[in-house]
Amino acid sequence: MNSTTSKPLSPVTKALRWFFVRSRGDSPFKTILIHATLIVASIIAVYPVLRVVTISLRPNDTLLTTSLRIIPENATLDNYKEVLFGAPEKNRKSDFFLWIWNSFSIVSVTSIISMILAAVSAYAFSRFKFPGRAVGLVFLLTTQMIPAGMLLLPLFIMLAQLQMINTALGLIIAYSVSTVPLTIWTLKGYYDTIPVDLEEAALIDGANRFTVFTRIILPLSTPALAIAFLFSFMGGWSEYLVARVVLQKNDIYTWPLGIFTYAQQFTVAWGQFSAASVLIAIPVMILFLYSSKWLISGLTLGSVKG
């Protein structure tokens, strides 16, 4: 091929060329570079998270240290023990399970409610033409522009009138539609990809609109529904601001409020704060990482056509 440079290449040049140049695919040099970049990026992504674990393992007397070790010296699980089960010797009880239960019960109910609302109305937006459809869709998008906390004050006043401050129901109400607009958009995008033929076939087979929805559309959109549920759940699970305003008593706290009691104590209990954080974050992260494959498809399915 290279008729102009017909004289044989020296072994060094050959090796260099092998290392740097490839006609197809990546050269070893490039591969190394890519891996190096990704490794650095991964470290940046993970290290701060690991530090939380580190702090949670430190014994109370060496909490403040400039050490960068991931497993600290004299690592101990004392913080976890105190977070989970309290400390009888200090006569301190633990609200940890209470907070988790509060968060879980509140957030699962809101997620279910908002999923049902969104799944049903997204179907209408996807399959029917009716006056107000376009306006409705744009309106739903507009709600995303409402600044956080803007609706908080009226909501607070409303809940106060209904005597629902400091109740789980109050927070459930406050949360229940906040993710609905975006979920409607996501699900509408997904429904749009399901061929209408299937529904028509079912209609002829003897289904009515309702059975079409429950027996064809819903089963076919399980991935999208799962993702929407996950988003809704995650959003509520670590929400802080609204909860701060609606809940003001310790026994009704959700965990984001709860773990702040560690940070607000006179001496900030970083060890316990971190231990509680780890305990909360681990199941959430496992769930999240496990479903991340779906997340990718679910997030883009609606927006990319064909």
């Binding site: 991964s42 701060p48 530090r51 939380v52 995650m234 670590s238 954080s277 992260m285």
Partner: peptide, 30 residues
């Protein structure tokens, strides 16, 4: 890599923010 790189998204924001606040401590922060 993909798993590791989504860590910051996977961790609840409240926790991440508090952990980072910690790391901006003038003496003991990362």
């Amino acid at each position: 890599y993909r798993t590791l790189l989504v860590f910051p998204w996977a961790i609840p924001t409240t926790i991440a923010a508090m952990a980072l606040r910690n790391e901006f401590d003038s003496r003991y922060g990362l």
